[in-house]
Design a protein around this nucleic acid. Structure first.
Lengths: 205, 205
DNA sequence: GATTTTACCGACCAAGTGGTCGGTGACATA
DNA sequence: TATGTCACCGACCACTTGGTCGGTAAAATC
């Protein structure tokens, strides 16, 4: 059973390093050799554990990206508090880690989507699945917000979700290009302005 | 002088096909051979006109992307009408062409930024320049709007610009993934809601 | 009409790529 | 102790890549 454990550990190490490099340099621009070098492992080791580069990448998405997305962008907005506030804090946190150049899984996703779109339907399916889950959870958070009196009943929940996901994906591309901290701040301010316009108006209905 | 003309025409053809393929398949995933095949031209022809693949790409950015960005995302928001309306229409138009799968230069830019970021500073500089021009023009459109009484004087023009650019870049990634038409519609609705929250309030101040 | 310039050709090259395969030694099983 | 399994090794392969270079034919220049 010790063997099995070692095997798992190696696979894990490969996947973690793989994600890091794929994220930094892009999938097509990262060779298996790059990853193996970083870990001082051989081709043989790689193909012993994975069928192909593509299989390897799919495993990474399912094992690392999907799970992390869940804990970071979905779990935090569950609950019955004001969803707009939950979302706000969640975005704030994630953008803050992004400022410090750590792996931000929202952006990892956006990155990969633009890399694979139109090229690799198999991989796109996996990426789309994750996005879909995010979307569904955002929509239900907004609806919960309506039910609990935090969100104006007239707003279109799906619309809000699309708008939120878009701007989040976008700000990440945009932060990466320049002045991340300033842009994060400006983005969050405007987001809160937008939230104001869809929250329940205390004055009339 | 006929020679010169033919030369220019060939370069133009190469650049147009190049942009198309780079956009569709990504820069690193498109070989010079791919482009040449499409045009039935030879390696010799390519390296006669361009120094390298990178040089070729930079030319494309400067000759095609930058100019098109200007006519499509910048010129339409100049003028002294309500800038929020101009921007709204401009985004609407561009997203509509995007729905029909034509080249959308806003997204071309976002795509390339995520592909080159952290990898090729030389190319990133060119992309950043274009983005900067867009940003500056958005900011001044908003400020004009304040001056002309269309936009609430308390809003942060730079913030609005960052928010607009982010959401535009994001919706394009997101539209490309699925249900472009629906998402475009939802996005535009929410964008107009946001605009309402930053326009001059007729009731008080 | 002779000469030079120029647009383009295509065989070729070195450097990588993803992927294969016959090994080897440590461990588990018997 | 003998045997089998399994994690890992690294030389090797077919193929693609960006890029070179000696050529050619037509146009421009003289």
């Amino acid at each position: 059973m010790d063997k099995n454990l070692k095997s798992m550990a190696t696979m894990q190490r490969m996947q973690i390093t793989g994600l890091e490099l794929f994220y930094k340099k892009g999938y097509y621009n990262t060779s298996i050799g790059d990853i193996l070098n970083e870990l001082s492992l051989s081709k043989g080791a790689f193909y012993h554990h994975f069928d192909s580069k593509e299989d390897f990448f799919v495993q990474i998405i399912r094992n690392l990206v999907a799970r992390k997305m869940y804990t970071v962008l979905i779990e935090p907005i569950e609950g019955h508090d004001n969803p707009l506030e939950l979302i706000s804090n969640c975005f704030e946190n994630e953008l803050e880690t992004a400022v410090h150049n750590e792996l931000d899984f929202g952006f990892v996703l956006g990155n990969f989507i633009s890399e694979f779109n139109g090229k690799n339907p198999e991989i796109m399916k996996h990426l789309s699945d994750i996005l879909k889950i995010w979307e569904v959870n955002l929509v239900s958070a907004i609806q919960r917000g309506k039910f609990n009196g935090y969100v104006d009943r007239h707003v279109d929940s799906e619309g809000v979700a699309v708008f939120l996901m878009s701007s989040y994906l976008g700000i990440r591309t945009f932060m990466v290009e320049n002045a991340p901290s300033t842009r994060k701040y400006r983005f969050m301010s405007q987001l809160r302005l937008y939230f104001k316009s869809i929250q329940t108006t205390r004055a009339t209905a």
